[in-house]
C-alpha cells in the first residue's frame, strides 16, 4: 500500500501526498478501463483530485477494517458511472486488494460497471441511475442527526446530473431540514454525453441555484488539492454546503481533456498505450519529486 508518509510527520496529510494519490487514482482508472474494454474514463479522471482529497486528505473518517462502523462518514458517488475512481480510492485505502481493480466490469467481479453496495465494502449505496444520490445522502444525514452522531455525509454529483429534477427536490429538503452535516460536491466539468452541458441543457447559474435553495455555496478549482481541502474543512454554517468544483473532463490524459467523446469509451491499443504513458509518466515524475 501507498505510504502514509506525511501522516507520519504529524499534522494532516500534505498536499503533495494527496496529489500523489490523485495521480495514482488516475493510473488505476486508465488501467482498469483499458483492461475492461469499456467504462467511463472522462468523468472518473475529472473527479480524481476531489476523491483523493476526500479519502487521502484526512477528510473522510472511514475504517477499511470496519467498513460498516456506525460513526463513519458517508460518501455517496451519485455519478455512479465514475465507479473506477471510487474503486481505485477504496483499494488504495485498503478496503480490498489493489489487484482486484483489473477485474472491473468482468463477469463475476465485485466491481460492477456501476457501484453495487452489496458487493463492495466501502460502497455505501448502489448508484448508476443519475439524480438519486443526493436523496440518499439526505436520508443518511437525517439518520445521523436522529442518532446524535457527528458523522458527515458527502455526495459527488455530475453537472449534467443536476438536470434531474430529483436533485432539486433533494436540495430543497436538505435546506428545509437544515442539514449542516451534509456536503455536496458538483464535478463541474462542463460536459455530458451529448456535448457541452451549456448546449444540451444549461444548469447555470449552478452555485446561485444552490444558494437560492438555501444552501451555503463555495466555488473552487477542482484540480487544486489546496482549494479542495480548504473548502472541505470549512466549518458548518447551519445549513448544507455545496462545493462547485471547476474541473476538466478527462483531466490527466491530454487527448481526453475536454472531449465529450471520452465520457464512456475505453482507450484501446495505441490510445491505451498513450494514455498509460501519460499517467505513468506523471506518477514517475512525482515519485522523483519533480
Amino acid at each position: 500500500m501507498w505510504k502514509l508518509q506525511s501522516e507520519m510527520e504529524g499534522g494532516g496529510p500534505s498536499i503533495e501526498y494527496v496529489e500523489e494519490m490523485a495521480s495514482r487514482l488516475r493510473y488505476h482508472i486508465i488501467r482498469m478501463v483499458g483492461a475492461a474494454g469499456s467504462g467511463h474514463p472522462g468523468g472518473s479522471l475529472s473527479s480524481s483530485d476531489i476523491v483523493a482529497a476526500l479519502y487521502f486528505g484526512g477528510i473522510l473518517r472511514v475504517d477499511p477494517r470496519n467498513p460498516l462502523w456506525s460513526d463513519r462518514d458517508r460518501f455517496v458517488l451519485s455519478k455512479g458511472h465514475a465507479a473506477p475512481v471510487l474503486y481505485a480510492a477504496l483499494a488504495e485505502k485498503g478496503f480490498f486488494p489493489v489487484d482486484v481493480l483489473l477485474t472491473l466490469r468482468k463477469m463475476g467481479s465485485p466491481l460492477q460497471g456501476h457501484p453495487d453496495c452489496k458487493k463492495v465494502a466501502g460502497v455505501e449505496v448502489s448508484t448508476g441511475s443519475l439524480g438519486q444520490g443526493l436523496s440518499l445522502a439526505v436520508g443518511m444525514a437525517l439518520a445521523g442527526r436522529l442518532d446524535k452522531k457527528d458523522y458527515k455525509v458527502w455526495a459527488l454529483l455530475g453537472d449534467g446530473e443536476c438536470q434531474e429534477g430529483q436533485v432539486w427536490e433533494a436540495a430543497m429538503s436538505a435546506a428545509h431540514y437544515k442539514l449542516d452535516n451534509l456536503r455536496v460536491i458538483v464535478d463541474h466539468n462542463h460536459l455530458q454525453i451529448d456535448g457541452p452541458v451549456e448546449k444540451v441543457m444549461s444548469v447555470e447559474p449552478i452555485a446561485e441555484k444552490f444558494s437560492a435553495f438555501g444552501w451555503e455555496t463555495v466555488s473552487v478549482d477542482g484540480h487544486s488539492v489546496r482549494e479542495l481541502l480548504e473548502a472541505f474543512r470549512r466549518p458548518s454554517a447551519g445549513k448544507p454546503l455545496a462545493i462547485i468544483a471547476e474541473t476538466v473532463k478527462g483531466k490527466g490524459v491530454k487527448f481526453m481533456e475536454g472531449v465529450a467523446g471520452w465520457h464512456g469509451k475505453a482507450p484501446q491499443g495505441e490510445e491505451l498505450d498513450r494514455a498509460l504513458a501519460e499517467v505513468t509518466m506523471r506518477e514517475k515524475a512525482e515519485e522523483r519529486g519533480q
Binding site: 474494454g37 469499456s38 466490469r105 460492477q112 456501476h114
Partner: peptide
Amino acid sequence: VGPDGATH
C-alpha cells in the same frame, strides 16, 4: 447491455 451492469 452487458458490462454497465444491473442498473442499466
